[in-house]
């Protein structure tokens, strides 16, 4: 699956705006809505709510994309975003506001870097994560 790379960047800009609203209002429910958006987009990037807005309102005003990008990095980033915003929502809703604020701040940094610089923080961290946690594949043995 290939995507117009401007779609996910537009979605990241909307995400950043929503997370600013979460931080200012302290609304756990809004964080939960954003987590749901991440979840839907991770399952199918072309059916993500922000992606639909992009295709309906923004894409028709732009030319055809010069390049397409693979969907796997985008989906992985959505999963990371989902985890952070979900924990933020739980923090706000259970009264552990500090947890909510910290998680929302991380999510804002990631969304903003994606929107403004096209940098996918979750993707960058992926190899580092696997380096620390991953066992060599040779550790698997054939089943008897």
């Amino acid at each position: 699956m290939l995507l117009d790379p401007r779609g996910p960047r537009f979605a990241a800009a909307l995400t950043a705006a929503v997370i600013v609203a979460v931080l200012v209002t302290g609304s756990g429910w809004l964080a939960l809505v954003q987590a749901a958006v991440f979840a839907v987009t991770a399952i199918d990037p072309r059916r993500g709510p922000y992606g639909l807005v992009y295709r309906a309102l923004v894409a028709p005003r732009l030319g055809r994309p010069a390049e397409l990008e693979p969907a796997a990095p985008v989906r992985f980033a959505q999963v990371v975003g989902f985890a952070f915003t979900l924990v933020a929502a739980v923090g706000y809703l259970t009264g552990v506001t500090a947890l909510g604020v910290v998680m929302a701040a991380f999510a804002l940094v990631a969304a903003f870097l994606n929107a403004a610089f096209g940098l996918c923080l979750g993707c960058e961290a992926f190899l580092a994560f696997r380096r620390v946690t991953g066992r060599p594949l040779a550790a698997r043995v054939p089943a008897p």
Partner: peptide, 18 residues
């Protein structure tokens, strides 16, 4: 207080990210 904290965190996060 929530709003001011949120705003301050937003500014710091955006500055650091930039």
């Amino acid at each position: 207080r929530t709003a001011w904290t949120g705003l301050a965190v937003t500014v710091v996060a955006l500055a650091a990210a930039t």
